[in-house]
């Protein structure tokens, strides 16, 4: 496996001049931020098609990390690898390692279910269950064996408050979540993810199907949430990345081209390809 990946890596980078500019270590140390996830030499294949090449990336704790890039660049695949949702496609193979707080998530003893309670996810289009708002938010805790009504009540209230939708929905907890607007549904889905108090929250283009007002509400929410959670957000919208993230990673053709503080990346890109992308020359 490693042999294949090395070869591919060579052929890949052979034509392109620059090596990926990954994380300027000096700056990171200055800010004394701890890392919640560490990705090392990650390669991923769908069958015989390689989708990710030698990704190395440290995800900082309690900050917002944005992932940008043109569609098909592997950003969505990458984020789904972080909680191993990508393995829902049976032909997926990976090499390299991903560590969550120093534990290898691909290790056989490290349970997928455990990983996913620590690393929660919000999806591209709102996907509430066809159940009441309450049952949606209580789903995670219940699945993990919490049954007491008082505890669940408290969790539901707290999660909905954290998702900034409690005031809108507190009188409609029994209403079917399908009856809510798209923006409300997405915030219920965020509340649902918050209910198990994960450590990291992955967001896969969470605003791509929302209207501008709902989008700005979700963006504000992300700013609030980073006080408690580490957030990784995939977005196709560069302005959104610039607005809400602390660090930004630029993916292209399955490679991590550049990963830096958001301000640096947008104002002073080190890689020609990054510059071309953010100035709109392609993608």
């Amino acid at each position: 496996m490693t042999k294949i990946s090395e070869e591919t890596q060579e052929t890949r980078t052979g034509g392109l001049t620059s090596k990926p500019v990954v994380d300027r270590k000096d700056k990171q140390q200055k800010r004394e931020s701890k890392n919640v996830m560490q990705v090392e030499d990650l390669n991923l294949w769908y069958g015989s098609n390689q989708a990710l090449y030698e990704i190395n990336m440290d995800v900082p704790e309690k900050r917002v990390t944005a992932i940008i890039g043109p569609s098909g660049c592997g950003k969505s695949t990458f984020i789904k690898t972080l909680n191993r949702m990508v393995e829902m496609v049976p032909i997926v193979k990976t090499s390299g390692s991903i560590k969550y707080r120093d534990q290898d998530i691909f290790n056989g003893n490290f349970k997928q279910e455990y990983l996913r309670t620590k690393v929660g996810m919000v999806f591209q289009s709102p996907n509430p269950f066809p159940k009441s708002v309450y049952d949606n938010v209580a789903y995670g805790p219940r699945v993990h064996g919490i049954k007491k009504k008082e505890v669940l009540d408290e969790i539901v209230e707290k999660s909905l408050k954290d998702a900034a939708i409690w005031d809108e929905l507190k009188d409609r907890l029994d209403a079917n979540a399908y009856g809510l607007s798209g923006g409300q549904q997405q915030r219920v889905c965020i509340a649902r993810a918050l209910a198990v108090e994960p450590d990291v929250i992955l967001m896969d283009e969470p605003t791509s199907s929302l209207d501008p007002i709902s989008t700005s509400k979700v963006e504000e929410l992300v700013q609030e949430l980073k006080k408690k959670y580490s957030i990784i957000i995939v977005t196709h919208n560069m302005q959104q990345a610039a607005r809400i993230s602390d660090k930004t990673a630029f993916f292209l053709n399955g490679e991590l081209v550049e990963f830096a503080e958001t301000d640096d990346l947008f104002q002073n890109p080190q890689d020609k390809r990054t510059e071309d992308y953010i100035t709109g020359r392609f993608g």
Partner: peptide
């Protein structure tokens, strides 16, 4: 049953059978 619902449930750390029994079958 949309694949979204599978993903939502598995993404919460539910097991396969929990996902089927609590989400897929009711839907």
């Amino acid at each position: 049953v949309p694949i979204d619902l599978h993903q939502a449930s598995l993404g919460m750390g539910a097991t396969k059978w929990q996902t089927i029994a609590r989400v897929i079958l009711p839907a």
